[in-house]
């Protein structure tokens, strides 16, 4: 049985018919062609597919598309673009916090979820928040530095309090 869902994705209303077993990740990647969220494990362990569901970071692979009916989703594509980079994206660039880049969208989405709740996280709070986001390239050090710098920039520009 297929279900009609209506979901706001990066500010745009999307109305689609989906199978009940389809994950939010598959819906985003295959139906909406939003490939920024990555499939690293498909079992909620690596965090490469993190998106914001009503502002909270969730694993898109563990969320069903039917569950987000009537809700709001933000993916990496909705965070910023080359002409209008989000301060957190700038901080990732400046701190050399990106290598292969596969974990980067998930890292940024998790961090946005964190900063929404805790605008000035300590290093330990960042590490706890990132514990579900695996990165094999960077050793996390420059990611943590970027997040501290990005959070500071967001406080400065007043996008969080």
């Amino acid at each position: 049985m297929r279900h009609n869902i209506s979901v706001r994705v990066n500010g745009m209303v999307e109305e689609h018919e989906v199978e009940p077993h389809v994950s939010l990740l598959t819906f985003l990647r295959e139906t909406l062609d939003l490939t920024g969220a990555k499939e690293g494990c498909n079992e909620g362990e690596c965090g490469s597919c993190m998106v914001l569901l009503d502002g909270k970071a969730v694993n898109a692979c563990l969320t069903l598309a039917v569950e987000v009916d009537g809700h709001e989703i933000t993916t990496i594509e909705g965070v910023g673009d080359a002409k209008r980079l989000h301060p957190l994206q700038s901080a990732f660039l400046k701190n050399h916090a990106v290598q292969c880049g596969f974990c980067t969208p998930g890292m940024i989405m998790t961090t946005l979820g964190l900063i929404a709740e805790n605008p000035a996280p300590t290093e330990q709070e960042i590490k706890v928040a990132l514990a579900g986001n695996l990165c094999r390239c960077t050793g996390y050090r420059q990611i943590i530095d970027a997040i501290q710098e990005g959070a500071e920039a967001m406080r400065q520009e007043g996008s969080v309090k």
Partner: peptide
């Protein structure tokens, strides 16, 4: 010196296309 990665922008914006992103 430490110029930024030349592939950094497309990676922080989620625009970089990996094999699984190709249709």
């Amino acid at each position: 010196h430490a110029p930024l990665r030349v592939d950094g922008l497309e990676k922080v914006t989620g625009a970089a296309l990996y094999t699984g992103d190709l249709k």
